[in-house]
Design a protein around this nucleic acid. Structure first.
Lengths: 234, 234
DNA sequence: AAAGTTTTTAACCATATGGTTAAACCATCT
DNA sequence: AGATGGTTTAACCATATGGTTAAAAACTTT
């Protein structure tokens, strides 16, 4: 028997054909979304026959999973690892923002892919993938809660702050296409379109957020009591 | 002659059939995106025949335009009006955040619709619609720039701050579906899913942002020199 | 080289989907 | 009532799209 291939579902695929397929698929899913991406075009871009794609990877859902799954796993691993090795709430927060920003810059497809899923409610994700998103989410929540209960941060609304940080980062990285479009309108006001300088982004975000949340003497005493995050269905 | 109908393209449609169509279309476009929305389903939900939809509104693109166009126009008008009647940079910023937040809460479809377009690069929008987005964008930029050049705000990176505020608000409102999905994972950590309390959101965001940007004595002198927003293609 | 196995491909299929048409329907006017 | 013209609808159409198949090609093993 030759390589048992049938790659997918296990760690990083080595089969060059599969690698090429996943590469192209990632681009297409990020640019056009799950519904908008065309299997035929992905195959064409990868320079192979569509049947080969189905043989090597599987159907559209499997293809999407093979693309997004590893991205999310890496994201969750990266964030957790980098956050957990930091001692203080502030350094942990910086690690969080830094690791996310770095990922978003390295993997320019991540922001569009995840912004789409955010709006779609993770419609095309498995529970395991949603779980990885939850890990990233949880990491930030823990950092903030710890920072608050230790008095290092003020008692701010966690969900709002989470949205600001995460939404801000992802929007910064993911809304580049719209900014580019706006720029074409030829308004005299120019917008920086692409090219994300990672560390500068991190510095600015951290600068803003820290000033926003770091405790000062005249702030109300922080307590870990704001943990009562309720679920209100619909 | 009877009602000349052929509604669309002019101000608010009165024809009840058209109103129902646009209502359902808005829901579908927000939930499934332009590609994901099905014209047949929109017609079915509106309780009419698909041909009626085409007769009254036009094709899928026209339908989308009829839904999104007025939303964007109202958004731009609202924001500009409320911002412009305020005197100080801080009150103008609050007016900006407040008007956006209020809109996002009143029109729950706005956040998903715009987040999708942000990632899609406004692919399905006319130049006029993109122009309205640009107005909203410009409003914030002017407020921040004015605040900076008048020394009321620190000289922070405008684009980053814009992304934080706008991305944060839209993500807060638009990522509810994903939060709902995460909540189904039954992790012991609960997430507030729906129900957006508008004024509380505004207060929290303003609280955070103001602390982040308001000038204090020991800040570097603010100057309007950071206006050099460059366009870097790609 | 022959047999066996994996991989690739052209052609094909079923269905979904955006869009159209011709006829029926309905209100208004004469 | 009949003519007129806007409105709705069932049926239809063309095409795109995800997915399959059977055979050819390529590679391994003996």
């Amino acid at each position: 028997m030759v390589k048992p291939s049938r790659s997918i579902a296990r760690g990083t695929p080595t089969n060059p054909v599969v690698v090429r397929i996943l590469d192209c698929a990632q681009t297409h899913f990020a640019r056009f979304g799950y519904e908008g991406a065309r299997v035929d075009e992905i195959a064409r871009d990868a320079g192979i026959n569509k049947a080969t794609l189905y043989y090597q990877v599987g159907d559209k859902a499997a293809l999407y999973h093979a693309v997004v799954g590893p991205l999310l796993e890496r994201m969750a691993d990266d964030v957790e690892r980098k956050v957990n090795r930091e001692p203080t709430a502030e350094s942990r927060l910086r690690a969080y923002v830094g690791s996310l920003a770095q990922l978003l810059v390295q993997q320019r497809d991540l922001a569009p892919l995840l912004l789409r899923e955010a709006v779609d409610g993770g419609e095309h994700l498995t529970d395991a993938m949603v779980g990885n998103i939850a890990r990233v989410n949880q990491a930030l929540r823990i950092v903030l809660n710890d920072g608050i209960s230790q008095g290092e941060f003020r008692a701010v609304d966690i969900l709002t702050l989470q949205s600001l940080v995460v939404g801000g980062l992802f929007f910064y990285a993911g809304a580049a296409p719209l900014r580019a479009r706006v720029a074409t309108l030829g308004s005299h006001v120019a917008l920086r379109a692409g090219s994300i300088p990672a560390h500068r982004l991190v510095d600015t975000v951290m600068d803003l957020v820290l000033r926003g949340i770091v405790s000062t003497r005249d702030d109300p005493l922080a307590g870990g009591d704001d943990d009562a995050l309720t679920i209100r269905s619909n």
